[in-house]
Design a protein around this nucleic acid. Structure first.
Lengths: 153, 153
DNA sequence: GCAAATTCATTCGTATGCAAATGATATCAA
DNA sequence: TTGATATCATTTGCATACGAATGAATTTGC
């Protein structure tokens, strides 16, 4: 390495300004890649359902019948997005819709028998997905990571 | 709490099977929410450009002219996705396209003067976005989190 | 009790994101 | 050299994701 290079490096170390911005070190960029990797692992284990569709079924299993909007809140989806997800689950016979008797604005969503079977069958696979996603980390690292990630979400 | 409730709780603790699956504790779900939060913070600071568009400009600033596919690899986007992103940046005059002289398959992408101005102007805002995204964590937690997140991505 | 504000759901428009198929070009191997 | 492969880019189709606008129904505030 030349004297000039060393001088240049010294200047860079001492004045880390805009020259320095490295996309691949930004949280947002890495977060996007980590999410991509998870979705890819998910697809490899559960091919016929997307993560959002799975989330909807899993949450319905937890809470039972709810309104479409309420379900959206529970799985962090806005109204427009949740509608599409529920439409597709309904088209496949995994959920059924009904009108709320009292509040006529609300559209109630519930699992069908088939939907309940599906989610029960898929949950063991979902556990594997979680495991594989976290596989690069040790048990202790997983605990630390989940704690910090939860703070960011 | 009734005796029955306590017995029930005991049973749950001792047999953590499928009854236990909690969507909101799964990496994939929290990863998705953390990513959503970041995108929202990004939009609040940089309204007229999306994170993928910004990523494309920032990477072009780093590496200079490259082929569309190569750029996609560098910013973790598949060929179909990167095409749309570049099309929109081109429509706004931030990048320009040209044909590779030797390899006629390749489409070269480069920043325009306007694109270069834009990315230089936006980088300070991007630093703020990173900071705000990580704001819930202490400096030490940030270091730990970034190390572990990188392992997962 | 009634007007204003809120909530629920839908629709539209735009932007990722990816699988799969296709066409053009380039490279490799027999 | 040529036939098989591989690479680059495009297109299509489907599925999130969200802002903004709209309409219907409910709740609030005075």
């Amino acid at each position: 390495m030349s004297v000039e290079d060393n001088l240049l490096k010294l200047v860079e170390v001492e004045t880390p300004d805009d020259q320095d911005y490295l996309l691949q070190e930004q949280v947002g960029f890495i977060l996007r890649k980590a999410h991509q990797r998870h979705v890819s692992i998910f697809a490899a284990h559960i091919g016929d359902l997307t993560p959002p569709q799975f989330a909807a079924l899993a949450k319905l299993r937890d809470v039972g019948e709810t309104s479409q909007n309420q379900l959206g809140t529970l799985i962090a989806m806005d109204a427009a997005t949740v509608k599409g997800v529920i439409d597709r689950l309904k088209a496949r016979g995994l959920v059924e819709l009904s009108k709320h008797e009292v509040d006529k604005r609300r559209l109630l969503v519930n699992l069908t028998a088939e939907g309940r079977d599906a989610i029960e069958r898929l949950i063991p696979l979902a556990r594997e997905i979680t495991q594989e996603t976290l596989a690069p980390l040790s048990a202790k690292e997983i605990a630390t990571f989940m704690k910090l990630l939860a703070k960011l979400a």
